[in-house]
């Protein structure tokens, strides 16, 4: 992973790449586009097969950001990888529940639970 990432911080726990978002609000179109490219790069260029997205720093995200997560999920599945989400605050979880995306994504309460589930 030699290329710099502007919107995420990465750490490795065993085989799992843990992604933490730097922006507390994932809302501006340009940032969403860049964030999407960074997440897709993790799968397509860096070959990460187990990804955990940690939302603990995220206060807000728009439906356009949801779109990027859906595309990421598709790419992960196409590469035979596994994607999990954790630490989603209640209001944002409600967004996932209303849109039924909580059925598409494997959402875990916290990082420890998510890591144990890989």
């Amino acid at each position: 992973m030699t290329t710099a990432y502007r919107h995420v911080d990465l750490s490795q726990v065993g085989d799992v790449t843990v992604v933490r978002f730097r922006d507390d609000k994932i809302i501006e179109d340009i940032n969403i586009q860049e964030l999407g490219q960074e997440l897709f790069r993790l799968v397509e260029a860096d070959g990460c097969e187990q990804l955990l997205l940690d939302f603990s720093s995220v206060d807000f995200l728009s439906s356009a950001a949801l779109g990027k997560l859906i595309t990421l999920d598709k790419k992960m599945k196409a590469h035979g990888g596994t994607l999990k989400l954790s630490n989603i605050r209640p209001e944002i979880y409600e967004v996932f529940a209303i849109t039924k995306l909580n059925r598409l994504f494997d959402i875990r309460k916290d990082e420890a639970e998510a890591l144990a589930a890989f």
Binding site: S63, A64, L66, G67, K68, I70, T71, D73, K74, V95, I98, T99, K100, L101, R103, L104
Partner: peptide
């Protein structure tokens, strides 16, 4: 939210 559209990346704004 229908199964055939759940993986479409757009179309959720009005619903939200």
């Amino acid at each position: 939210t229908t199964p055939d559209r759940l993986e479409c990346p757009s179309g959720r704004g009005v619903m939200l």
